[in-house]
Computed example of a mutant assay.
Amino acid sequence: MSLRTALSCATAIIAVFILSACGTKTASQEQQTAEVKLIIKASNYKFDQTEYRVKGNQPIQFSLETTGNHGITINELDLSLDPTNQNQVITPAAGTYTFECSIACGSGHKDMKATLIVE
């Protein structure tokens, strides 16, 4: 086999691997859909509710509607929303989770707290 033939074969094999990897999605990369939606509104250094309740063990679309630069993160649920990523679908486990604004948004930032209760 000539060097040119060997290089052509190697290039073809590499291309097959690259193309097959591009078409493969892991479960975390796939966009989940959810019938249940929870909208969290943030503005003027507060959330629209101090407590949010949802049923657990089902996909839920969390959405952040914000006036200003606000975000939320719940590390235990791998939930992170901000003005550039306003929607996320997760299946939360039962529990009580406290969250606060994850973006230093001004003088009232420290008061932006709420609770998520997953039943």
Rank of each mutant, 00 (worst) to 15 (best):
S28M: 03
I103G: 05
Q86R: 07
V54D: 11
G71F: 01
E65C: 06
T26H: 08
A27D: 09
T66D: 06
P92C: 12
T5K: 07
T73C: 04
I74E: 01
Q86A: 02
V36M: 09
T24W: 14
K55I: 15
K55R: 13
Q88G: 00
A42M: 09
N75V: 01
I40L: 10
E76A: 14
N75G: 00
L64E: 01
Q61G: 08
C101N: 15
D111I: 08
A21C: 04
R4D: 15
D78P: 00
T96Y: 03
I60R: 00
A27T: 06
N44T: 12
D48N: 15
E76W: 02
I13G: 04
L3I: 11
T98N: 14
K113P: 02
K113L: 14
N57I: 09
T73Y: 00
E51A: 15
A104L: 11
G95E: 07
A34H: 11
Q86G: 00
Q32G: 00
L3T: 12
T73F: 02
Q88P: 00
Q88I: 01
E30Y: 06
P59H: 03
H70F: 02
C9K: 08
T91H: 03
A93N: 14
Y45K: 06
H109K: 08
T91M: 05
T98K: 14
T50R: 08
T67Y: 13
N85R: 04
